[in-house]
């Protein structure tokens, strides 16, 4: 298992120009072992959380598939021949999804207790509320208040190619727009596959 090829992970988009610069602690072997000391463990979780967020941000990953991520460079340091085990990775993500972890993750379709390995998790390197603000700022900045945009336009359109939310997961986008709707800053209408949004 340790010999598994590190680059099989489908998560690294080939489009990324520069490879992700891992932090120093990524090459500290004990970082990949679950620490029994609770204080140390908390610090470990914190560092993992930061690493996962930075990694996902760099690679524009919105949804992390646990089983695939295990073999990606994120959880597997091939140079050290160390990897985070499935259980430990799940624990880290659970911690990220929890209150002390800052709700930086959310399991898709449940709490991740189903140990099928097929669990997926939203990694909130920006939380939906933060995304909402970003979207609002963009709409404000480009003077599109009052205009109607389709969701597809928002994430895939050429106009947003330089924005952080370009290529965003559709469900996450909806979550973020819901926040704006609640704030009374937007309105969503339309059918399943042709949703539009109007910003106020």
């Amino acid at each position: 298992m340790a010999q598994a090829a590190p680059q099989t992970g489908a998560l690294e988009p080939p489009s990324t120009a520069t490879p992700f610069q891992f932090p120093g602690y990524y090459s500290f072997p004990p970082f990949f072992t679950a620490q029994p000391n609770l204080v140390t463990r908390a610090a470990q979780h914190q560092k993992w959380s930061l690493l996962i967020q930075a990694y996902c941000r760099h690679n524009r990953i919105f949804v992390l598939s646990l089983i695939d991520a295990l073999n990606s460079p994120l959880f597997h340091n091939a140079a050290l021949n160390r990897r985070l085990s499935l259980n430990d990775a799940r624990e880290v993500l659970n911690w990220m999804a929890s209150e002390p972890g800052g709700n930086r993750a959310e399991w898709i379709g449940g709490t991740g207790k189903a140990k099928t390995g097929a669990e997926k998790v939203w990694v909130y390197w920006r939380r939906p509320e933060e995304w909402a603000s970003v979207l609002e700022g963009w709409v404000d900045g480009t003077g599109q208040k009052g205009s109607v945009l389709t969701l597809w336009e928002l994430v895939e359109g050429e106009a947003t190619a330089s924005q952080e939310f370009h290529g965003m997961d559709m469900d996450l986008l909806q979550k973020s727009l819901q926040v704006l709707v609640k704030r009374g800053k937007a309105q969503i209408f339309g059918q399943e596959d042709s949703l539009g949004v109007k910003f106020f």
Binding site: F28, P30, F32, N37, N81
Partner: peptide, 24 residues
């Protein structure tokens, strides 16, 4: 020493090694 947070452990294939705690 690990309990006191001075050391941390590294579970490798060749057994447990103790390191200075550079996690905290």
């Amino acid at each position: 020493a690990e309990e006191k947070g001075v050391l941390c452990r590294d579970q490798g294939l060749d057994g447990i090694r103790f390191w200075e705690n550079f996690i905290t």
